[in-house]
Simulated scan of single mutants.
Amino acid sequence: MIRVKRIESGDWRTVESFWNAKGTAFFRLPAGARIKVRYGVSFLGFDRQEQVLDGSNFKKLEVGSGSLANARMQVRVSQTTDVTYDVYPGGVAVNSPKVPF
């Protein structure tokens, strides 16, 4: 499902949350934006899969069976902008977005 969210500049912003669930998302724009998966809560949490978007290639984030607690896909941008991404809930084996955006 393709989604568009307005992201305020500054700190990390959550775009998708998972509780004991799996999910996959693809991001491409804006170039220079940073994406990651954050597991856990507060200072007890840890980050995985941190990547920087280049504006031309799709970057994939996955929340797998290891998310027995809270997992969040997060984005950080240098200026307020819209972020478009394609998210697939559940344990589907997806290697690229079904519809290029």
Rank of each mutant, 00 (worst) to 15 (best):
I2A: 15
K5G: 10
K5T: 03
R6Y: 07
R6W: 06
I7Y: 14
I7S: 02
I7V: 13
E8G: 14
S9T: 14
G10H: 12
W12L: 13
W12D: 07
R13W: 15
T14L: 12
V15Y: 02
E16V: 02
S17P: 02
W19A: 02
W19G: 08
N20F: 15
N20K: 13
K22T: 00
G23M: 02
T24W: 00
A25V: 14
F27N: 04
R28K: 04
R28H: 04
R28L: 02
R28Q: 06
P30W: 04
P30G: 09
A31Y: 10
R34V: 10
I35T: 03
I35S: 03
K36C: 04
R38Y: 06
R38F: 09
Y39T: 02
Y39A: 04
Y39Q: 05
Y39M: 07
G40I: 03
L44P: 13
F46T: 10
R48C: 15
Q49W: 01
Q51I: 07
V52D: 13
V52C: 12
D54C: 06
D54L: 01
G55F: 00
S56C: 06
F58N: 12
K59N: 09
K59V: 01
K59G: 10
E62Y: 02
E62C: 15
S65N: 11
S65F: 08
S67Y: 14
A69I: 12
A69W: 14
A69T: 11
N70W: 03
A71C: 05
A71R: 00
R72L: 05
Q74H: 08
R76Q: 09
R76E: 10
R76K: 11
V77A: 10
V77E: 09
S78V: 15
Q79V: 03
T80I: 03
T81N: 09
T81A: 07
D82P: 12
D82K: 08
D82E: 14
V83F: 07
Y85A: 00
D86R: 00
V87Y: 11
V87A: 07
V87Q: 01
Y88Q: 04
P89N: 05
G90I: 00
G91N: 13
G91Y: 09
V94N: 04
S96A: 11
S96F: 15
P97H: 05
K98I: 12
V99C: 13
V99I: 14
